[in-house]
Amino acid sequence: AGHIIHQYLGAGVDTTIAAIGNIVALFGRHPEQFKLVREKPELVPAAFAEVLRYWAPVHIWGRKATRDVEIEGVVIPAGAQVGILFGAGNRDPRHYENPDSFDVLRNPVDHLSFGYGPHGCAGQGLAKLEAHAIIEALARRVESLTLGDEVREPSNITRSIERLEVVKVSAA
């Protein structure tokens, strides 16, 4: 059980921190979307799904092909290392209309940020509870966010914010 808990915590800490920072940054950048969530708290789950779709906390994850697979005319041979680009998949215009717009009404429950199938994130239930609580608290207690300087955490794996200056928070 110790190994399972270690993996659960190890995989979930950086991604949760990244997702929380992305929530604040996106609501600050898109005040009209934050206003929708404030007016309709039932949008909280959809808003979090859209945050994960729009800015996937994990850029890439590796897998090894166990058999030859053809994808759109390209054969990936058995044994090949494959990089799964979550953010690119979440912005696929063949799947999402206006993929480069942040829209909390979209409710993209099929985003790729938690992985899929047997490789799906084991901690996604906890991540949703944490993020929903944060979004709900922001929506109840904060009218608007004004952002200052942002410094991204340099990483090949996560999309995370090292520092985000919140210049002004108007209390509700």
Rank of each mutant, 00 (worst) to 15 (best):
70 E>I: 12
130 E>W: 05
79 G>Q: 11
113 S>P: 03
88 A>N: 03
62 G>Q: 08
65 A>H: 07
79 G>N: 11
126 L>I: 11
83 G>P: 04
96 Y>M: 07
69 V>K: 04
110 D>P: 05
140 R>H: 10
108 P>F: 10
77 P>H: 14
74 V>S: 10
107 N>H: 12
106 R>E: 09
134 I>L: 14
134 I>A: 14
104 V>M: 04
93 P>R: 13
65 A>R: 11
109 V>Q: 05
91 R>S: 12
106 R>P: 05
101 S>N: 07
60 I>F: 12
103 D>P: 07
81 Q>C: 05
139 A>K: 05
131 A>S: 13
84 I>A: 13
67 R>K: 13
89 G>N: 06
100 D>S: 13
98 N>Q: 12
90 N>K: 09
94 R>N: 14
71 I>D: 00
105 L>W: 02
137 A>I: 01
68 D>T: 12
96 Y>C: 07
137 A>D: 13
59 H>R: 15
60 I>C: 04
135 I>C: 08
136 E>R: 15
83 G>Y: 10
105 L>Q: 15
102 F>Q: 08
60 I>M: 12
78 A>Q: 08
93 P>I: 07
78 A>D: 01
65 A>Q: 10
130 E>F: 05
115 G>K: 00
121 C>E: 01
91 R>F: 06
60 I>G: 02
131 A>T: 14
133 A>D: 04
126 L>Y: 05
119 H>G: 02
102 F>V: 12
126 L>A: 08
132 H>F: 15
91 R>Y: 08
136 E>Y: 08
139 A>S: 13
86 F>E: 04
79 G>E: 11
88 A>T: 06
115 G>M: 01
113 S>M: 04
123 G>Q: 08
96 Y>S: 06
120 G>I: 14
87 G>F: 00
120 G>R: 13
65 A>W: 07
139 A>T: 03
113 S>R: 04
95 H>N: 09
70 E>A: 13
109 V>E: 09
85 L>N: 09
61 W>Q: 12
82 V>M: 05
86 F>P: 01
86 F>A: 14
66 T>A: 10
134 I>V: 15
78 A>I: 07
70 E>M: 11
105 L>R: 15
90 N>A: 07
131 A>W: 03
68 D>E: 02
110 D>V: 02
76 I>H: 07
71 I>F: 04
130 E>R: 00
77 P>E: 15
136 E>P: 00
71 I>C: 00
95 H>C: 07
125 G>A: 15
62 G>P: 00
131 A>M: 14
85 L>D: 10
109 V>G: 07
140 R>S: 11
110 D>K: 10
93 P>F: 10
100 D>F: 13
101 S>A: 12
71 I>L: 14
100 D>R: 15
122 A>E: 02
73 G>E: 13
136 E>W: 09
79 G>V: 06
61 W>I: 08
140 R>A: 15
98 N>V: 00
107 N>F: 06
61 W>L: 08
130 E>N: 03
66 T>G: 11
72 E>Q: 14
62 G>T: 03
132 H>D: 11
138 L>K: 12
74 V>L: 11
74 V>H: 13
67 R>S: 12
132 H>L: 04
114 F>I: 04
137 A>E: 14
92 D>G: 07
76 I>D: 06
106 R>S: 04
122 A>I: 15
69 V>Q: 02
79 G>F: 08
112 L>T: 10
